[in-house]
């Protein structure tokens, strides 16, 4: 978990540019340093590069130029922070009936590695993550029998099971009802305040988390705004970009 007072940024991008093969630049010259324990909302129009920014930060895409560091290390290297990740439109491709507990248990990979069985402490962490998203009674039910919103909550539990220092969520409220969005916002705020978890929250809709976001990035091919949500200039306050 996060050590309070550590000055190395949770996420640092320096002059990062990126283009998908054969396409125009998806992101140009992105530079930012995210303090540990902050809740960063990443907003912008569709195709503006907000998911690309997140994927670059996590090491899922390699920048054409520039540097990306997580807790001072290149993403994916040993000794880096534990990361919980909820991808955009998370879904299962497996043909088997995967239960909620099985998918959430996969989140312990960040803690326990790939080798050997889960221990009692891991099973307890998985149960706690499932409990936190309100799926305890459906823990052993196949995911595909649940509603889209419940499935999304299971994937959020998977990210939480990693006991992450950095939680990266891409459109986490897709298909989730308003009450569950409020619950998620409260949970993320609690994780940030009590455990110092850094949250990167990509969304086109910030209604539920507006009051807990500590920093807002607006991405439109480049970072066009970086500051407190209350500082967002009126001309950028487009409902299609930020709630």
């Amino acid at each position: 978990m996060h050590v309070t007072g550590d000055t190395v940024p949770a996420v640092m991008l320096d002059g990062v540019s990126f283009a998908y093969p054969g396409g125009p630049a998806a992101l140009e010259d992105a530079t930012l340093a995210v303090e540990r324990g902050s809740f960063v909302g990443i907003a912008g129009p569709n195709g503006g590069g907000k998911t690309t920014l997140l994927r670059l930060a996590l090491g899922l895409e390699r920048p054409a130029t520039g540097t990306v560091l997580l807790h001072g290390r290149p993403p994916g290297t040993r000794g880096g922070p534990r990361v919980g990740y909820l991808p955009q439109r998370a879904h299962l491709t497996a043909g088997s009936p995967v239960t909620v507990r099985e998918i959430v248990s996969a989140g312990r990979l960040a803690v326990r590695g790939a080798f050997g069985p889960l221990r009692a402490v891991d099973r307890a962490a998985v149960a706690a993550a499932i409990e936190r998203v309100g799926l305890a009674e459906r823990a052993d039910v196949p995911l595909r029998t649940l509603s889209g919103g419940m499935q999304q909550r299971a994937f959020i539990a998977k990210a939480l099971a990693a006991e992450p220092a950095l939680l990266a969520l891409d459109e986490p409220t897709t298909g989730v009802d308003a009450a569950s969005q409020e619950t998620l916002a409260a949970l993320l705020d609690e994780l940030r305040r009590e455990l110092g978890v850094t949250v990167l929250y990509v969304s086109h809709e910030f209604g539920a988390v507006e009051h807990v976001v500590t920093r807002l990035l607006l991405v439109r091919g480049r970072i066009t705004f970086d500051g407190l949500p209350s500082e967002l200039p009126g001309h950028l306050h487009d409902p299609s970009h930020v709630h």
Partner: peptide
């Protein structure tokens, strides 16, 4: 884990 979620596993350091 890598079968269910290859990208998530990469992010997890696997």
């Amino acid at each position: 884990a890598t079968t269910l979620d290859p990208e998530g596993s990469r992010v997890a350091g696997a």
